Computed example of a mutant assay.
Amino acid sequence: MSALEPVEITAGALHLRPWRPDDADAAFEACQDPEIQRWTSVPSPYRRSDAVEFVSERAPLGWSTGTSATFAVVDATSGGLLASVGLQDLRDAAGLPGAGAGGDGEVGYWCAAPARGRGVTTDAVRVLCRWGFGALGLAVIRWQALVGNEPSLAVARGAGFRLDPEPRPLPHPRGGVADYWTGTLTP
């Protein structure tokens, strides 16, 4: 596995940048939203220590190992936190952990409640996927969401993912198995 060089991407009103330790308070506040805890794999309840670990350890570890690239999505003018987007479970063309040409990854995201309904997450996912295909040379980006997560489904559709016709039973991050919508995006 080789490290990914952290990058920053400005696209119109959005700025995608790696998470920083000083983002802990904003991440903690955003992840108090019950909808983020309901539909994503963030811990529930979400504690300040979870936010500190995420911005200071987990997100940087993904970059340093080349296995994920997670971005804070901030307002390009004010710097206020809007969302989180990332490519996770990055694998090379041989299926080994770490980003590589011809490989794949899975998109993940959440949107802070005040930014919802403005197309922020869809736009950020489009930007992220263009970067994944262009800079990382990925061949496929996967998406999944718990059945019933209509906002995530709308983002996937808006970003151009080809959706699988039937839900799939997959392991749930909090234990057991649940039905997931799945899809893929190619360059």
Rank of each mutant, 00 (worst) to 15 (best):
Thr186Asp: 04
Ala124Trp: 00
Gln32Arg: 13
Gly95Ile: 01
Gly183Ser: 08
Gly102Leu: 06
Leu61Gly: 14
Arg20Trp: 14
Leu163Thr: 00
Ser41Pro: 01
Glu166Val: 09
Leu4Val: 10
Gly103Lys: 11
Gly148Gln: 10
Ala154Lys: 13
Pro21Phe: 11
Asp123Met: 11
Phe54Thr: 09
Leu82Pro: 12
Glu106Gly: 04
Ala13Pro: 04
Asn149Ser: 11
Arg17Cys: 08
Ala124Asn: 06
Arg142Val: 05
Met1Tyr: 13
Arg38Glu: 15
His172Val: 00
Ala3Tyr: 12
Gly175His: 02
Pro151Val: 02
Arg142Tyr: 14
Thr10Gln: 09
Asp33Leu: 03
Cys111Asp: 04
Gly100Glu: 11
Ala76His: 07
Gly175Leu: 03
Val147Gln: 05
Val125His: 00
Arg17His: 04
Ile141Ser: 01
Val125Gln: 00
Asn149Phe: 07
Leu163Ala: 04
Glu5Leu: 15
Asp23Phe: 08
Leu136Cys: 05
Gly132Arg: 13
Val140Gly: 06
Ser49Asn: 14
Gly80Met: 08
Leu81Lys: 13
Thr67Trp: 05
Pro169Ile: 00
Cys31Ser: 14
Ala83Leu: 07
Ala24Ser: 09
Glu29Met: 14
Gly148Asp: 03
Ala83Cys: 07
Tyr46Ser: 10
Thr121Lys: 13
Trp19Arg: 09
Val140Ile: 11
Asp92Ser: 01
Ala83His: 08
Trp39His: 10
Val7Cys: 09
Gly183Cys: 03
Trp181Gly: 14
Ser152Gly: 10
Thr182Arg: 02
Thr182Val: 03
Thr65Arg: 12
Gly183Tyr: 03
Arg142Lys: 12
Glu5Thr: 15
Gly117Cys: 08
Gly132Lys: 04
His15Arg: 14
Gly175Glu: 02
Ala13Trp: 01
Gly119Ile: 03
Thr122Tyr: 00
Cys31Gly: 12
Val55Ser: 06
Leu16Ile: 06
Leu90Glu: 06
Pro114His: 11
Gly160Tyr: 00
Asp22Gln: 14
Gly160Glu: 02
Glu57His: 15
Val74Ser: 02
Arg38Gly: 11
Ala101Leu: 11
Ala51Glu: 04
Phe28Leu: 15
Pro34Gly: 13
Arg118His: 08
Gly176Asp: 03
Ala124Ser: 05
Arg17Lys: 03
Tyr180Glu: 08
Val42Phe: 11
Thr67His: 10
Arg168Phe: 05
Pro169Gln: 04
Pro21Leu: 09
Ser49Glu: 15
Gly98Arg: 02
